[in-house]
Design a protein around this nucleic acid. Structure first.
Lengths: 142, 142
DNA sequence: TCAAAATAGTTGCTATAGCAATTATATTGG
DNA sequence: CCAATATAATTGCTATAGCAACTATTTTGA
């Protein structure tokens, strides 16, 4: 089997290229696609723990700790103490963080719109479904 | 638009999960999915320059330099001088490297087989086609 | 009740990813 | 011809990714 026939290689290659474009647009705002994904998730589900956040962005908890460090350094989130469990923090988006998210979201959407140029709605829906099924299959193997 | 609706997020998330599984199987052989992809490409197209190799795996040239460092450290490749251009090297797979590739390839294929469980041939072909089109769209934006 | 086990988060280490600057060599244009 | 430019690879810097070890708490169970 050739490398080009590997679905794994193709998925990662495509993802890498998409990230490159998004990061290119985000760079002027000192933002990265990964930081944005964490910020976006937090905007959607404020008040969850770091552990829960990690699960919701499919990232390692260690990794989320460090991405939150970056976001906190820039004043985009704060770590609230959890009154129910003093081991955990509840990261919370600041007004500056929400503003950043709202400024970046259209950029991200624009890149995606260009990336799926030529695909019709049905194809996009099918693609999402297939990727989701593969992600579920992979998750079961861990 | 919610994060879960972003094709970019979904592609990267799925790729990350697949890499996790592959790396899990490869770890016992001190191999990673990324090192394997570079080694596999070299096995397919021996005698190309590092610059060409980088293009063929869609990785940064800097990154390829360092992945080759790893492979060389393990004796899986050597850097041949290029008689036509003394600036460049022609990385070449050693017998040990080829053996490693052949030992890992079935593992990778097995992970992929489990990952696409439940998808029929037509769906896999369609998925590859759509990803390729998105990758091409993204590449044009750089 | 309270020692043992489990859990949330962090830190240290290594690998991958990409940008900017540097070095060595090749190519080009006056 | 040779100075200016371009190119291949490397190094330095920072961010992302994940494993293992550690700290501080919480939960469990005898």
């Amino acid at each position: 089997m050739k490398l080009d026939d590997s679905i794994g290689f193709l998925i990662n290659q495509t993802g890498r290229k998409l990230s490159q474009v998004v990061n290119h647009y985000f760079a002027a705002h000192e933002m990265t696609s990964e930081q944005w994904s964490v910020l976006a998730r937090l905007c959607e589900e404020d008040g969850i723990s770091q552990k829960e956040l990690a699960a919701r962005v499919s990232k390692d908890q260690t990794n989320v700790t460090r991405i939150l460090d970056q976001l906190q350094r820039k004043g985009l989130i704060v770590r609230m103490t959890n009154p129910e469990d003093r081991r955990s923090f509840l990261p919370s988006v600041t007004p500056e963080g929400r503003q950043m998210y709202e400024r970046m979201a259209p950029l991200e959407e624009q890149v995606i719109a260009l990336a799926i140029q030529g695909l019709d709605e049905k194809e996009v829906a099918k693609l999402k479904e297939l990727l989701q099924r593969i992600a579920n299959n992979a998750a079961r193997q861990l």
